[in-house]
């Protein structure tokens, strides 16, 4: 029963993280910089969805779709105002990364200014969970796992079964060569921003639906999202999904593990129970990240 619950909890966490890590890794793949404001874009969308559903009374799914579209346009707008100009004058990716940190701080405070720092919740009733093999899961959590899975499938189809996907992969591999083949790289970059931001909104909204919504949420989930993207191999969308899965399972499994079978050394000692202190939960992810990077510095799925 406990194992099933751990699997369910991990899948929920992975579904939320992977959509966010996917957007982050897309931006890195094409523009070669880590966008520190990515989770705040997601949060902007989550707040917009909240306002559409609360103030305008729109159904939540419609609110999320509109918010994802608007945030996608916002991502394009920020690129046009900031990153494109800097790219044009030849600014290095590391500088773009620092600019994105500034955008993160500014956006976080704008969110606070508009929506205040009070904790908000979506109009979703807290209901008794369903029981599956002795473990519990709510309808919302089932929907989160389903939406997460379908979004990843849709992304895979987009990337591998469409001309658009081919063009996107082409500019990721070699932008100059892609441009020589008449691919409008700036147009593709705009689309990339739109998709990355919109996917982020779906992930961010799912986190806020399952938990709570507040302006600092984006900053608070930044580290696990980065961790997932780097673990899988930043720049590789499938790596982002794998990284999110590993991270989610690590957080849940390690805390549930009882190491007495290991440390009792076959009966030499008689520890009743040895479990990792829950205060070290955040360290678990980083330990795994460090170990993976030691043996595979590019991450699990990224080629050298």
């Amino acid at each position: 029963m406990e194992i099933v619950q751990i699997i369910i909890n991990s899948l929920i966490r992975a579904s939320e993280l992977s959509l966010l890590a996917l957007g982050l890794t897309m931006v890195f793949d094409i523009l070669k910089f880590a966008n520190f404001a990515h989770t705040d874009y997601a949060l902007l969308g989550a707040f917009l969805a909240y306002s559409f559903s609360q103030a305008l009374g729109l159904p939540l799914i419609v609110s999320v779709m509109i918010a994802a579209g608007l945030t996608g346009l916002f991502g394009i707008g920020i690129d046009k105002v900031l990153y494109k100009r800097l790219r044009t004058i030849g600014v290095q990716p590391v500088s773009l990364m620092i600019v994105s940190m500034g955008v993160e701080i500014a956006l976080r405070n704008i969110l606070r200014l508009i929506w205040s720092s009070e904790t908000k919740t979506y109009p979703i009733a807290v209901v008794k969970p369903l029981e599956i093999l002795g473990a519990r899961i709510t309808m919302l959590q089932l929907e989160i796992i389903t939406v997460g899975f379908l979004s990843m499938v849709a992304f895979h189809i987009l990337l591998h079964k469409t001309t658009f996907g081919k063009a996107l992969r082409a500019i990721s591999d070699n932008r100059a060569l892609a441009s020589a083949c008449a691919i409008d790289s700036e147009k593709m970059i705009r689309w990339m921003w739109f998709i990355a931001s919109a996917y982020g909104v779906i992930g961010g909204t799912m986190i806020a639906m399952e938990h709570v919504l507040y302006p600092r949420l984006g900053f608070n989930i930044l580290i696990p999202v980065f961790c997932a993207a780097i673990l899988g191999g930043i720049g590789n969308p499938y790596g982002a999904v794998l990284g999110a899965l590993i991270l989610a399972f690590a957080e849940n499994v390690v805390l549930a593990l009882d190491l007495k079978w290991l440390l009792n050394l076959g009966g030499l000692f008689h520890f009743e129970s040895i479990q990792i202190n829950t205060g070290y939960k955040p360290a678990v992810s980083f330990l795994i990240l460090i170990l993976v990077l030691l043996f595979k510095p590019t991450g699990l799925l990224r080629k050298e």
Binding site: Q5, I6, I207, N220, A256, N277, T278, G279, K281
Partner: peptide, 21 residues
């Protein structure tokens, strides 16, 4: 005994530990 970090969005693993015994 569960000790948790503030400002996290997911406490399911901590709750699982809380009830594990």
């Amino acid at each position: 005994k569960v000790v948790y970090e503030l400002n996290k969005v997911d406490y399911k693993a901590e709750l699982q530990r809380l009830f594990s015994k």
